[in-house]
Amino acid sequence: MPEAQKPLELILARNLLSSISTPAFLVDAEGTLVFFNEAAGSLVGRRFEETGALGPREWGEAFGPFDAAGDPIPWDQLPLTIALQHGRPMHSRMHIHSSSGDLHDIEVSALPIVGTEGFRGAIAIFWPVGGEDGSAA
């Protein structure tokens, strides 16, 4: 019998994310980016079908989150990493660049996913910030 089956909690999360227009990432318990939806793909300028799964540090580097001063945010300080490593929600504001070089000002909320058999991974939801008042675009 195949052993590669994803945990049900991740399957359901992927089905949800693939059905919504809010940009979102899904990582498994090992920190691998196992899916991002079309809306997130529009934000980062790449489709998941192009990138495939990305390792824990690969996705951090691929989308290069920066702080307000333009300095890279260390991988272990990203909301998704904190949700993964500490099992708690995290929210922050940051900048990312797309594959075309465009800079996006975004807010990120990361939520851990805990199933009946323990920690399964995390979801990060992105919200592009726009307008002079900083309101969500």
Binding site: P2, E3, A4, I11, L12, N15, L16, S18
Partner: peptide, 21 residues
């Protein structure tokens, strides 16, 4: 197939796949 077409999913992303393969 809730929220996703079975035809669009890889095997590992189908609920129950490993049980029934």
């Amino acid at each position: 197939a809730l929220g996703a077409s079975l035809d669009s999913l890889g095997d590992e992303w189908i609920s129950g796949y490993a049980l029934a393969k």
